[in-house]
Design a protein around this nucleic acid. Structure first.
Lengths: 210, 210
DNA sequence: CGGTGTATTGAACAATTTCAAGGAAAGTGG
DNA sequence: CCACTTTCCTTGAAATTGTTCAATACACCG
């Protein structure tokens, strides 16, 4: 999704965001699409009592707000900065016009959607059939493979337990307890928001499907 | 997704399916894409002990197997006929070539994916935050709005309780019990696979989000 | 008519959420 | 920089929801 980004570079409008800032909110009219230059963003859906489910994380180079493309009039999700971030914004009309003209862009976007759909349906199955501990194990592996490790061996996407619980679709308390189990079993170690995977194989065992 | 179907009509290969036949299986190498001429199909993901989650239903005019498009080498889902069906098959190479050439087709496919993704993420949130009863209520409303009612006022997509439970992501027994509650509360009435919604408003109350 | 699959129900069990309550950390405004 | 507010963290116990197991009934099919 990064190759053609420079091609439409000239039409960008830049914004900077502070931690906790909202890029767009579920239900807002769709007015454009965003690219992340720097920072980390969560994309989430809301539910009663401030409950939420994080459906995706984005970092530099990623696209946000694409769920508004097509026939949708309002964003079906909210996007919130997890740390200071810089985004560039494209008017929806401009972006749609680009899609009409730029076949490669459209093809990439289609493939991107296809991949997101697969991930999403996998997550659906996980939510339906996996225990919280299994979903946590899976989330850790996904975060590692998607964002890698930093210099110190931590998963390079630090998350509050709050956000972790929203990501795996469980309550804060349950997530906390399951995390403790993993720590006591020496499968992971945790220092504030920073997580180290000690025994990847044991995590994999927790998500065996059959 | 139906408008451009005739355009590539000449390249089709037809197949007929009996109830229970599998069109393709999760893990099979992707060899093509299917269009449903008639019949109903479920698209599902498997899990241990023969558990499954139905991620989508398709009927005549719908596309099946599109999840294999792009970089994927194997289907991430299984497609099974719920009743006798007729499909037409397109080689993946031919379909990909069409996408490269036919901009409108590609655009429609992209929009289709975008819509599917939104639905999928909505389902994710429902699985994470709604009770089984709420998910059942939601499923009934979705099935009604998607497939309509037949002449007798039944939801025009008869489902075994087995499939219903796989669709809402709960066990057979729980689904059964929740269905009984809805019946006892005179919200729905059921005759074998055929369901009538008696009080749509009460179903909506069960899925209030906030 | 027996068999296979679906329907039905109860009871025990397990997983997860909810509630409650205290402590730590972190950001905010004076 | 400090007091204050808020948010996040931590833990236990109780309540709830949903699953699993088990056993029986029913229905259709060859």
């Amino acid at each position: 999704m990064k190759e053609w980004l420079p091609a439409i570079h000239a039409h960008k409008k830049n914004f900077t965001l502070r931690k906790g800032d909202t890029i767009f909110r579920e239900g807002d009219p769709v007015n454009g699409i965003f690219f992340l230059y720097s920072g980390k963003v969560k994309v989430h859906k809301h539910w009663a009592d401030g409950k939420e489910l994080i459906v995706r994380f984005a970092r530099e180079g990623d696209i946000v707000g694409h769920r508004g493309i097509g026939t949708e009039l309002v964003y079906p999700v909210t996007a919130t900065a997890l740390e200071p971030a810089a985004v560039c914004f494209f008017e929806i009309d401009f972006f749609n016009a680009s899609l009409k003209v730029n076949h490669d862009l459209l093809y990439e976007l289609m493939q991107f959607y296809a991949k997101e759909l697969m991930e999403s349906e996998k997550s659906m199955r996980n939510l339906a059939h996996m225990s919280v501990k299994g979903r946590l194990a899976n989330a850790l592996l996904v975060l590692k493979s998607k964002f890698g490790l930093d210099e110190e061996g931590f998963i390079a996407f630090p998350l509050s337990k709050q956000d972790m619980s929203s990501y795996i679709g469980a309550t804060y308390e349950t997530t906390f307890r399951m995390m403790n189990e993993l720590i006591n079993e020496h499968i992971i170690s945790v220092s504030a928001k920073y997580i180290t995977i000690l025994q990847e194989e044991k995590l994999r065992q927790l998500i065996r499907e059959d």
